[in-house]
């Protein structure tokens, strides 16, 4: 009952931010597109037909066709699956790994130094570089790309979670829980995590935007998802050769990335404003 009223309170505050609501609507729309790609796409993502290659956007092909005669709109629709799943799963990986390490570090002072020094080492390598090296080592595939992007932001989440747990565990209600004999893991799962969750959600939403950009950048550079998969970054990379003649091949996939990332950023900002108690007026 209490949880319900808290959620509705958050929603009430979130709703006031019109940008964030629009962002959320855009995200829902993209999720629906990804789920119903088969039904929505007029063509398959790899339906090649030399006779209709390089048709500029028109009524029949709203976003034109590429050098192999594939319909760009259909490829974009299928491509939304890649971007969204990479964004979601990569962040899932980093939240789980980083969250676990962060909680351990915050709760076991003996391990704290070791874990956080290791995280410092990984932080010393820019995220993009680390992801590139990992994906090279694992070989390029959708799953490896997610893993690389996810693991490369593990240290960031470990830090966020550690800081937030450290702040929470000093509070009286944790003392109280300990006083009635609750074990470490019970305290972590029932008392500390629920109180750190709001900052984690905000970070995760913003990280999702970052993950989508990183993944598409990796694909763009040829380290991620390869042709003929319709990943947006890879489409951009393929269309780049024709920038002088068929600019729409580079403009459109980039716009798609930007719209999704923009929506995630707006929603993340909106969530931060309504979840983060420090910003409450």
């Amino acid at each position: 009952m209490k949880k319900h009223s808290m959620l509705s309170e958050i929603w009430r505050r979130f709703r006031k931010n019109h940008h964030a609501v629009v962002g959320l609507a855009v995200l829902v729309l993209f999720v629906l597109i990804a789920v119903f790609a088969e039904q929505l796409a007029p063509f398959g993502y790899d339906d090649q037909d030399a006779s209709r290659a390089m048709i500029a956007p028109c009524m029949e092909y709203p976003f034109g066709t590429d050098n192999l005669g594939r319909d760009v709109l259909s490829r974009l629709i299928y491509g939304s699956r890649y971007s969204l799943s990479i964004g979601f799963l990569a962040v899932g990986i980093s939240v789980l790994t980083g969250g676990f390490l962060g909680v351990i570090a915050a709760y076991y002072p003996k391990l704290d130094n070791i874990i956080m020094r290791c995280m410092d080492l990984f932080m010393a390598i820019p995220q993009m570089l680390l992801a590139m090296c990992i994906v090279t080592a694992l070989g390029s595939s959708l799953f490896n790309l997610m893993l690389a992007v996810g693991l490369s932001s593990t240290p960031k989440f470990a830090r966020v979670v550690r800081a937030s747990v450290l702040a929470t565990r000093e509070q009286e209600f944790v003392e109280a829980a300990r006083a009635i004999g609750a074990g470490n893991w019970r305290i972590i799962l029932h008392h500390i995590l629920p109180n750190s969750i709001s900052s984690l959600i905000v970070q995760a939403t913003l990280a999702m935007a970052g993950a989508i950009i990183s993944a598409s950048a990796l694909s763009f550079l040829g380290f991620g998802i390869q042709a003929p998969m319709p990943e947006w970054g890879a489409m951009l990379s393929a269309g780049r050769k024709y920038i002088r003649t068929q600019a729409y091949l580079t403009v459109i996939p980039g716009l798609a990335i930007m719209v999704v990332v923009y929506a995630l950023n707006v929603v993340g900002d909106g969530l931060r404003d309504c979840l983060d108690p420090r910003l409450k007026k």
């Binding site: 935007a209 950009i213 598409s216 950048a217 763009f220 970054g233 951009l236 580079t250 980039g254 990335i257 930007m258 990332v261 923009y262 950023n265």
Partner: peptide
């Protein structure tokens, strides 16, 4: 600005 992929 922050939503635009740098390569694009």
């Amino acid at each position: 600005g922050i939503s635009m992929p740098m390569f694009w």
